[in-house]
Nucleic acid binder design. Structure first.
Length: 263
DNA sequence: GTAATTGTTCATGT
DNA sequence: CACATGAACAATTA
């Protein structure tokens, strides 16, 4: 589930559970999640360390350590966090396990191993190396418009491109385009300036709304597409309209063919 | 057995 | 170089 709103939820989760707690032991249970660091080095780095604050950029979560460095987490398709006290509650696919001095644990669970864990000394450098575009919640309108000018391709593909804007994935791209009433296959050069501004304003609207509802799709407003995706498959604005699907960038895309007309 | 899954990267073709 | 497409990564479910 980890697009921007989910990662924001994980940030709050860490803030509420794991901040300022001395780490007694760190265990990497599967080295495939490690990015440019070996098991012993990261375990040694985390042992006796402490998470002092957190920050999110796009779909990445950075945990500030008291050693003037950052633990980097990316959740891939199936990443999750769990804080618990009884080791029997450990998630089935724990890849990184922190054991705190207070006898509680924090597990980074990642069934499909697409997640990433590493340590960096400089967030901005890390973001630069990844060539990540501006964060979707803080990008300015001018920045967004400038990033889109001189580009071609489908609007949904643009929204999914982390080099252009960071944090939007398959699910929220669909919601943003539904709220904007724009067909996901529309070529960017066929969109008017007003359309692009509508997309821009709906990016923060959708992501903020998702965060306010704790990234729980079942609690999203009745006017949102997401609760209907793969469920009743009906347009929330008019239940006589069935949602359609199309593959874009290899991802199944849901849209309402009546409210999101092809140009 | 088949297809699909909320992410990213790489290879190949246009 | 920009973009589209499909494969790969891995595990599980419908």
């Amino acid at each position: 589930m980890p697009e921007l709103p989910e990662v924001q939820k994980y940030k709050q989760y860490i803030d509420e559970t794991s901040l300022h707690q001395p780490i007694k032991e760190a265990t990497i249970k599967n080295e495939k999640i490690l990015e440019n660091i070996n098991k012993a080095d990261i375990e040694n780095h985390l042992r006796t360390n402490t998470i002092t604050q957190t920050t999110r950029f796009g779909k990445y979560l950075f945990l500030s350590l008291k050693t003037d460095s950052w633990l980097v987490l990316h959740f891939g398709m199936t990443g999750n966090l769990k804080y618990f006290s009884n080791i029997n509650e450990q998630p089935a696919h724990t890849r990184l396990l922190l054991s705190f001095v207070n006898n509680h644990y924090l597990a980074f669970d990642c069934q499909r191993l697409f997640g990433l864990v590493t340590v960096t000394s400089n967030i901005n450098e890390y973001i630069k190396n990844k060539k990540l575009g501006p964060d979707a919640l803080t990008i300015k309108k001018k920045e967004f418009m400038d990033n889109l000018s001189n580009r071609t391709g489908k609007i949904k593909t643009i929204l999914l491109n982390q080099h252009i804007i960071s944090g939007i994935g398959n699910i929220y791209a669909d919601e943003i385009l539904f709220q904007s009433r724009i067909h996901p296959e529309t070529q960017i050069n066929n969109l008017s300036k007003d359309h692009i501004q509508s997309v821009f304003s709906h990016i923060s609207f959708v992501l903020q709304t998702a965060i306010e509802h704790d990234a729980d799709i079942s609690n999203y407003p009745q006017t949102f597409l997401l609760p209907h995706r793969r469920n009743d498959n009906l347009c929330p604005l008019n239940k006589n309209h069935k949602l359609s699907t199309v593959k874009i960038s290899g991802r199944t895309t849901y849209y309402c063919p009546y409210h999101q007309l092809k140009p």
